[in-house]
Design a protein around this nucleic acid. Structure first.
Lengths: 256, 256
DNA sequence: CGGAAGATTGAGCAGGATCAAAAAATGTGG
DNA sequence: CCACATTTTTTGATCCTGCTCAATCTTCCG
């Protein structure tokens, strides 16, 4: 876990000016496909915040929408309170992932974004971004790709919730995290989950007890090994098969 | 399966040329905010298909993504098959609503779009649309709004699935349909559902029997009146309250 | 070291799924 | 236009899974 240095702000203003052009998340984030000159132009409208501590909120539901945010490090969750006051988690967000795109339509944030693990974020004012996109085709295109990815992610989540069975839902989440860690250069086989069991429960729409039991079941079956938030995927192929989808590279056809 | 009329296309090319500029769905659809000249430019890239019969598919999951589609009349459902082979409905789409935006990221359709009620659709090749958007700011903006709306819709659906209770889920669906019919100039109090009970079940992730019972419950409580697919919302305020959200105009604050 | 929050484990219950059958709606051909 | 076949919807009975309540154990922080 991140132990905070006692001296207040960790980064100086100078070091905050981490440029997009030197960011290792370029291919996941907005600059993808842009020329170096265009990235420099993008940098001018991106603000880098100092790190947010665990539990801090980046923005809250119903607040006016002015900017989108990209996690640069750490992890963030987005949630809405259900009518019963229970937190319903919409998504977990890792570095390079854009959050807040749902605010465009109503000019208001539709979710609350809260930090799970000490996170630094980039803030991109949306009006400036749109203006820039209007004369940088690569940026316009990437923005649409990111929104499309957001839609697909939520469709997958809807699919996972329909396919009930707590173990299967958990398996899908773990495989999703595994893949996302892999895309960021981390091990897909062993990683630390950034969220608590209760967060997982709120995400999978299950009781926390059920999530705990589901972890137990997957471990007992030799699919994973768990130690607190540390997860090791013991048998990736078996876990994938269990989750109900073919292994990577497999086909998923259906009758015409 | 769809029986094609023996005489070839129903509509002549001339009648197919229903222009965006004379379409009464303008404010919901792509042209919103565009000048008349810009709409004319948009029209050039929009193709109007002849009506699709009930049961026909507009596009299928995994097919290459080339265009987005807008329902002009009728109703369409989008779905994915779950790992157990059960149809999981992602959305119901009324005239003016854009479908297929989830295909941008992978260049492949992520869902199958099937016609519920005889529908005519506009087909908009996405590469041409993107190109047009690059020099028509209003179009670029509207495209982002539509994608954002898509995201918000799915977030609402995720929220509804978390807030279980079959009756509440059904109430939320009925209120959603009511509002969407109202936006299109139809009565928000009385309307014909375009989908079957099984479709509703697949959308709400419930068994068809449970949906049937939920209709019975809402009717017995005097919130709605049902006759087959015809639904009358007898007590809108009470139904809204029951669904767990404040009546229209109410506040939805929470502690800071 | 101690308090509080988080996680696990167990026991009992309830709500929605499933199975089964009847009733109603839809469509088809004579 | 009606009779029949098929599908859809409704209703009833039973079962099972995940929720709830409760207690213990662990981890995290001051």
């Amino acid at each position: 876990m991140p132990t905070r240095p006692p001296g207040g702000n960790i980064l100086t203003l100078a070091s905050l000016k981490t440029a997009c052009s030197s960011c290792n998340l370029q291919d996941l984030c907005l600059p993808r496909g842009m020329s170096e000159a265009e990235v420099v132009e993008l940098e001018r409208i991106v603000a880098h915040s100092r790190p947010y501590a665990r539990g801090k909120t980046v923005f809250r539901v119903d607040q006016p929408f002015r900017a989108i945010y990209v996690a640069r490090s750490g992890a963030i969750k987005t949630y809405i309170l259900g009518s019963d006051g229970v937190e319903q988690i919409i998504g977990f967000h890792l570095p390079g992932e854009v959050i807040g795109l749902d605010g465009v339509i109503e000019h208001r944030h539709q979710v609350t974004a809260q930090v799970l693990e000490m996170a630094s974020v980039c803030e991109v004012p949306f009006d400036l971004l749109e203006h820039a996109a209007a004369h940088v085709p690569a940026l316009q295109h990437q923005l649409m790709r990111l929104m499309s990815r957001d839609i697909v992610g939520k469709e997958q989540q809807l699919l996972a919730l329909g396919d009930h069975s707590p173990e299967r839902r958990l398996a899908l989440l773990l495989l999703d995290m595994s893949q996302r860690f892999a895309h960021r250069g981390f091990s897909p086989a062993e990683f630390n989950l950034p969220m608590s069991r209760q967060d997982i429960a709120a995400y999978l729409r299950l009781a926390a007890e059920t999530v705990s039991r589901a972890f137990g079941k997957l471990q007992r079956d030799g699919l994973i090994e768990v130690d607190g938030r540390l997860v090791r995927i013991a048998d990736h192929a078996a876990l994938t098969a269990f989750a109900g989808q073919m292994p990577v590279g497999g086909n998923r056809r259906e009758a015409s």
